[in-house]
Each structure stands twice: as structure tokens, then as C-alpha cells.
Amino acid sequence: MEIFIKGTNSISPAGNFGNITHVPEIKFIDGLLKYYSCVEPVYKEIINPVLLRRMSRTMKISIVSAMLCLKDAGVEIPDAIIAGTGMGCVEDSDKFLSLLIENEERMLNPTPFIYSTHNTISSQIAIMLKCHGYNSTYAGRGACFETSILDALMLLSDGNASNVLVGAYDELIANQIRILYRMGLFRETKESNSNEISGNHPGEGAAFFVLSAKPSGKDYAKISGMSVFSENEPLSESITGFLKKHFISFENINSVMFGNLHNNIQSGFYKKIVTLFPAFTNLLWFKHLCGEYMTSSAFALWLGANCLKTQQIPEIAFLRKTNNLPAKNMLIINNLSGNQFAIFLLTK
């Protein structure tokens, strides 16, 4: 089944689609730990300042992104709200956890606990919109954003919804960055090769989509297929099988966007995949624009959808530019944490 992206918005380290010309500014924690941080809009211009005061940073980023997405789609109240998040509302979790240890379980303010739960965003959006429809949140490592899309696809194909608001969010806080570096997931040192651009920094962001089963005439793109594979499944065969299932050949894919962490793609997970595509396929990447986080697939989908709508791919997104064909079919392949990988097929 095909679903149409009627509207979309992202708040990310890369900023607006039109501004994607360079790698986002790198920020530092403790003077040496690099990370990417969202370029945030002036919230009070978008949302009631009274409501804003009660919101954590991730609530602002996610809820505002969702509201701008609905506005973009021209939808006031969606029929369902579904969100995915890797780590959830980390700032509030960190705050409550630290306090409970510090205060030895005494005199605790419940507010951070209330907003620490992963479903805060989808339910807060519902409360703001008075939306009583289907509402769910997928969480943790693995395919949490992809499951949100799959859930929306089923709602649309069952005819239980016309417009589904689907999104993903993850925020970064200082303690988390420290932990991620200590785990060895990111490198503290400068890049050894000056030609190498790295997306291998912790990142964050929110991206939302209004999905519909019917074309609106001004859609960004269609999600023509999506699959999640476990690492137990053979990589090349999985991708070949995916394309076969959607009646499309490798030759018909103008561009493929990878979730690699470095512009040197001749190593690691993506090395084998690159060889599947003919030499004229454009190779794109996105993690140098948003950083690495559990729901970065949502940023990739937002980027891809914008490329198809505007028929322009930002120069900075190319790993290999080998054709100038109008962007028609795009694949997004992202290696997820938790031994899974996901493929999206986007078509104009």
C-alpha cells in the first residue's frame, strides 16, 4: 500500500530544508565531547507562552514540530497520533532520578516524574488538540519510528483513519552525552583524516509527518514501501527481496540515502550494500546533518521527502553525485541500534 506524505516538519541540528548547505555547528560538553544540537525556532511565536512555561525542552521541540507539521498539511485535528522515541523524555528522567538519589527519596517534586514517561509527547499533543483518536508510542532501541509508520499504514489501510500524525523525537542532555562517550560509541579525538567528514556525534531532533491514504495534490512524496530487517537476515538478499516485492529494480532508484556515520563508505555495514547499486545511482547520507540517535530515520525521511517535493538535493547530502535525473525513486537504508535495519522506498 502507498501512503502520501501530506505535510512534514522537522526541528533538527540542520535547521530548515532551504538552509541545508553546511554541516551543523558542533557543540561541546565538558570542553571536549562533541555533539549536535537542534536549531530551535522562537517558540512563543508558534505556541501559547502560558503552555510553553510548563514544557521541557523536548516537549517544546516535539510539540512545536508536530503543530507546524499539521499546519503544513492543512490538518487541524488528525485521526490518530503515533510517536516513536529512543530514549524518551531524558531531561525529566535524569532530573527525577538525580533528585530521588540526592534527597534519599524525600521531598520530591512530581512534575519531572509526570513528564518523564515516553508517551508524554503523543498524549500532550492529543490533550492540546482534544484529539480522542488512536494514540500510541513506540520506545527504545530498534525500530521505534519504523513501527510508528507501520502502525499508521495499518490504520490507513483498514480505513480507520484519514490523516495520521506520525513522528519521532529524541533529545540530548549533558549526562547522556557523557555516558555515550564513555560507552565508546563516539570518539573524543579529532578526525585522523582531514578529508573525512563525520556524522559520528551524538545528535537529536524531532520530525513529524501527516500521512494519508489519499493524494492531496500537494503531497511531498509517497512512502511506497518500508521494511525492518533483523541482522540475522542476509543483507543483500533482504534489500533485493524488498525491491522485488515493490516491483522496482536497482536501476530505477535514482538516489539511495544511507545512515552511515562517515563519508568513507568503504567500510562497515554499508560497504556491501553500495555494490548492489549501479554506478549512476546517487549516494546520499544524512547523519552528518543530524548526528546519531535512535530515531534518526525520521530526519532522513523528512530530508528525503523534501528532496522529492522540491526536486532538489542539497549538495552537502551527496556522498557520490553521478546523475542529475529528476528525483523519482529514493531508498533510505538505516542501520538501527538493536541489531535491526530499516528500508524506506520514497517515490515522487
Binding site: 508517551n119 527504545g140 533483523s230
Partner: peptide
């Protein structure tokens, strides 16, 4: 072990599930 998906991944591994797995948190 902090993120919600960690236990899911462990359960999937223990059950030897090769297919799809995901985690829900709606409180």
C-alpha cells in the same frame, strides 16, 4: 540496560526470534 528496547531485545534473543520485534510505552 536503561532504554525500553533493551529488555525486548533480550527477550527476542532468548526466544531466538529472528523476525520483527518492537517496544511499546504508553504508560
Amino acid at each position: 540496560t536503561h532504554d525500553c528496547g533493551e529488555s525486548t531485545q533480550k527477550i527476542a534473543k532468548e526466544l531466538n526470534i529472528h523476525g520483527f520485534y518492537t517496544t511499546i510505552n504508553t504508560a
